[in-house]
């Protein structure tokens, strides 16, 4: 057996170099065949999802925008322990801790809280490790279908507490449904 007849994959094909006959060399038949194929695609269902109006169906285990939780009394859970920042593989999370002052007991659950809590959305990979690392059930990834909005400055992608903390109305609704 000579080398060029061996086919290791079993998919080897001989290239045909035969000369085209007259009908092939005026290309018309081949072009007609091609036209028939493309015209079929004219009537096929289009696969495009028109994004802002239509939203792609997400998987049931989808992880969306982060949220900093409040408890049933509307107090922030986060104690600025920094476990999420340590767990984050993309190093997207930073925070500054602060001590709770007397009279702020209705705002923060424990004596320590995060005065600044920022996630860089350009770095975040939505892996959900912060959620797993959190000992206080403070941060979790919602099923929100809202994708990070485009912006023209890098600073605009750093989400602070104004965007991350659960809105009060939602906390009120939650505690109402609990009682």
């Amino acid at each position: 057996m000579s080398l060029d007849t061996i086919s290791l994959s079993g998919r080897k094909k001989e290239v045909s170099n035969k000369k085209m006959n007259f009908w092939e060399s005026i290309y018309l038949v081949a072009i007609l065949k091609g036209l028939m194929i493309t015209i079929k695609h004219l009537f096929k269902r289009k696969v495009t999802i028109k994004y802002p109006e239509q939203i792609r169906e997400f998987s049931p285990v989808y992880r969306g925008q982060h949220m900093l939780k409040r408890d049933e009394k509307g107090r922030e859970n986060c104690t600025a322990c920094g476990m999420c920042a340590v767990a984050c593989p993309a190093e997207a999370i930073t925070m500054t801790a602060a001590e709770r002052k007397p009279g702020e007991e209705h705002l923060y659950r424990e004596e320590k809280y995060a005065s600044v809590y920022e996630i860089n959305m350009l770095r975040c990979i939505f892996c959900g490790l912060c959620e797993e690392a959190c000992p206080k059930d403070a941060i979790y990834l919602t099923e929100s279908k809202v994708i990070v909005k485009s912006a023209s400055h890098r600073e605009d992608f750093i989400y602070g507490k104004d965007k991350l903390v659960m809105p009060l109305e939602m906390a009120i609704k939650n505690s109402k449904s609990l009682n």
């Binding site: 695609h41 269902r45 289009k46 696969v47």
Partner: peptide, 8 residues
């Protein structure tokens, strides 16, 4: 062009 390529 779009329709023939299954686009909109």
């Amino acid at each position: 062009a779009a329709w023939l390529q299954d686009r909109i």
